[in-house]
Amino acid sequence: MTTETIIRVLAALLAPPLIGALCFGLDRKITARFQGRIGPPVWQPFYDVAKLWRKEPMVLNRVKTLYVYLHLAFMMMVMVLLVLGEDMLMVLFAHAFSSIALILGAMSVRSPYSRLGAMRKIMQMLAYEPVLVLMVVGIALDNASFSASDIWVRPQPLLYSLPLVFLAFFVAALIKLDKSPFDVATSHHAHQELVKGVTLEFSGPYLALIEITHFYETFLVLAVMAFFWITEPAVGVGLAAAGFLGLIVVDNISARLTTRSMVKIMWTVPLMLTIINILWLYR
């Protein structure tokens, strides 16, 4: 392993939570402005995590805490596999297992709220997982390779060949980042669902780890959006910024849907968009 690889891996582990936290802070600020409020400082997520880290590590049982570490480890695995240029489908699986670890952690106590949140998280995964897998397949078909390293060397932006997949991914990202109308399992900001559902029984440093994982996830979603125009990185970042703003707007203007209608919507419109786009690639 070369020094360069080590540096890249370290960068992939350290930079995303910082950027993700800033984005999350921006999210809260912009949301506040939409609502005519001043809002917290952009650094608020850092304060939150630092505070949570100092709180008492309250648990219900020992087993549960293992899953918090797994939740974070799988998300870090996503980053490492991505910078190493590994198979994108494997990256996606690692990403899914990050959520599964959280679900198992939430289900390992007999707390009805946390269990309901976990069940709803499973439904969320059921809703977006096919879209994400097909998105990766679409990218792979277009690149003729599943390798993440090949995505950098492309003659033209991915958005040209996968416009509908981008739209579908946008909807999936709403679920991924727990935004309305799909924040059924848990939600950030002050509006709670099921008294914080899946994260309810985690507190103190464990909640901090979950927050950090969420920062990774925010970064990941934005990075994937940027990948759709990676040939010119500036445009890619612009695309991600536009997508992020779109997510915040949708979050602010929509009411929460039921789990059932979430799955129905995801398995019809975005999934169909993805399938149509992919079928077009086979031509």
Partner: peptide
Amino acid sequence: YDAERFGILHVGNPKH
């Protein structure tokens, strides 16, 4: 009044 400008969040459960 916007309590969130001081970082105040209204969470729904004692654990957080």
